[in-house]
Amino acid sequence: MPRPWMPQALKADVGDHAPCDPEFPARAIAHITADREATAEAPLDLVPFANLKGFFTGSGKGQAPHILWDPFTGAFVQFFPATSRSKAVFDAAGGTRTNRAGKVVIQIESLFFPHCRVNGKVFARLVDTPCNGWGDLHAWISSWGVPDVWPMGRPASLSRNTCPADKWRAQGGWYAHAHVPENDHVDPGSWPAFVSQPIDPPFAEPRFELFPGASFFQVGRKSLIIEEMHGRLVAEDCDRYTSSAGADVWGAGDVRSYTAWQQKLGFEGSAADGVPGRFSWDRLEVPNV
């Protein structure tokens, strides 16, 4: 049974749920946030994930997708369940209900604009980014019966290519915002290839350390898990330690550094308290010990 809420996503339910139109096949619609206009000659810094999360839960509720995806960190936040329509495409009165035309119509906004700058590096296309988390996102959307096809072709440029009405009604799969009837956008320009899902061998060891539970992280706890976590926080530029001594012992430096990691993922206020939770831990990818 597919899950209405993506397990890897922060849940930020904006309410106002409404059903989709089950007479149409299941589909997904790919967007980029395109929130700044940059060029190769004048790149601009990527807008923080938390800013877009705040927009879609605030003044931008009327434009919210199902999922906001950060392809640089692999963070997700979800605003509507898969069983509801979202509101990220224009829907003309009396026409095709573009936000609802499918058993599901899962809309994804990737946090990206062409020539965005992240940690000093400039990215011209979405596919040039690490696309972290794409495997999780693709698997969740596939669980809702969205086939791995682009009826109008996989997007390869920022250009308009409106889907004919009969094809839109008849064919499920993945559509670019540039393909959706009644709309005039040209995004996303590119999108990662579908993920091949190889079957893991029986009893395969996990690549990353499983979440040990929040109660594991007590002052004075000594563990190789904490030492590996320390290394990952440093690698993610969340180093708020005053010393590398005692890297395997949980203490105040770990709390400060983990808070920085939670903030990098878009957590705010009391949600960025420095205590690991399953979502943030899984995104950190601590090597298995």
Rank of each mutant, 00 (worst) to 15 (best):
F211I: 09
F211C: 04
P212R: 01
P212A: 06
P212L: 03
G213R: 01
S215K: 07
S215P: 08
S215T: 03
F216T: 04
F217D: 09
F217G: 03
F217A: 11
F217T: 10
F217P: 10
Q218A: 11
Q218T: 12
Q218E: 12
V219W: 07
R221K: 11
R221N: 01
R221T: 01
K222G: 01
K222H: 04
S223I: 07
S223A: 05
S223W: 02
L224V: 04
I225W: 00
I225A: 09
I225R: 01
I225S: 05
I225Y: 08
I225N: 07
I226Y: 01
I226G: 11
E227R: 10
E227Y: 00
E228A: 01
E228H: 04
M229Q: 09
H230V: 02
G231K: 07
G231P: 06
G231S: 00
G231R: 08
G231Y: 07
G231A: 02
R232D: 09
L233M: 11
L233E: 10
V234L: 06
V234Y: 00
V234Q: 03
V234W: 03
V234I: 11
V234C: 09
E236W: 10
E236R: 15
E236S: 13
E236Q: 13
E236I: 04
D237G: 05
D237T: 07
D237E: 11
D237Q: 07
D237S: 11
C238D: 09
D239K: 12
D239V: 00
R240D: 15
R240L: 15
R240G: 14
R240Y: 04
R240E: 15
R240C: 15
Y241V: 10
Y241H: 15
Y241N: 12
Y241D: 13
Y241G: 10
Y241W: 15
T242M: 12
T242S: 15
T242C: 13
S243G: 13
S243M: 13
S243I: 11
S244G: 14
A245W: 13
G246T: 13
G246I: 12
G246E: 12
A247I: 14
